[in-house]
């Protein structure tokens, strides 16, 4: 009994170490919020195009094939780091990348796309963040993978890196049957 009393704090301590060390060693980022929208259909929306572009983006286009939806903005610094990764992805796959330009001024967005390249099949302007909120976004960049039935299958609320593309995005696109 006495031994048990002395052993208890040590056991509790070891338990806490295991509990806190696991996510640390796995590299889980506690600031990322799990999305309840995974496996749900994409929200219904219809966003206008950037000036000079033929069309914007609406939820009806997110059906029929596997697609990537990327929320970005010209004011978003991590988006700039992500831009070359998206450009390479657009060149190496046939999966459409749809852009949601979040709370941007059209002229700033056009400048951004001119400077860093335009990997998007089409872009919708979400000038008041209504659609971003419907996607459960809380910043930019955020990337979603939508399957052929128009369901959200994956979300990353952080800029995509080349490693993310190789380890997560491409395998998932292949699994979902992207061509």
């Amino acid at each position: 009994m006495r031994r048990l009393i002395f052993a208890t704090p040590i056991l509790v301590f070891v338990g806490l170490v295991v509990y806190f060390a696991t996510p640390l060693l796995r590299g889980t980022d506690p600031s990322l919020i799990p999305s309840p929208l995974i496996d749900k259909p994409v929200p219904t929306f219809d966003l206008p195009p950037l000036p000079g572009y033929p069309k914007g983006l609406s939820s009806t286009e997110l059906k029929g094939q596997v697609q990537i939806v990327n929320i970005f903005a010209s004011w978003c610094i991590p988006c700039r780091a992500e831009a070359p990764v998206l450009m390479a992805l657009a060149q190496n796959t046939h999966v459409p990348i749809r852009g949601i330009d979040q709370k941007d001024r059209p002229e700033d967005a056009l400048e951004y796309l001119k400077e860093l390249g335009d990997p998007y099949t089409s872009i919708g302007m979400d000038s008041d963040r209504h659609v971003s909120i419907d996607w459960g976004a809380y910043g930019a960049p955020e990337t979603f993978i939508v399957d052929a039935e128009g369901r959200i299958r994956y979300k990353q609320a952080a800029p995509l890196t080349q490693a993310d593309i190789q380890d997560t995005i491409l395998p998932l696109l292949e699994k979902l049957g992207a061509k």
Partner: peptide, 8 residues
């Protein structure tokens, strides 16, 4: 809000 952002 709960439908979009979950329990968080």
């Amino acid at each position: 809000m709960h439908a979009r952002y979950g329990d968080f």
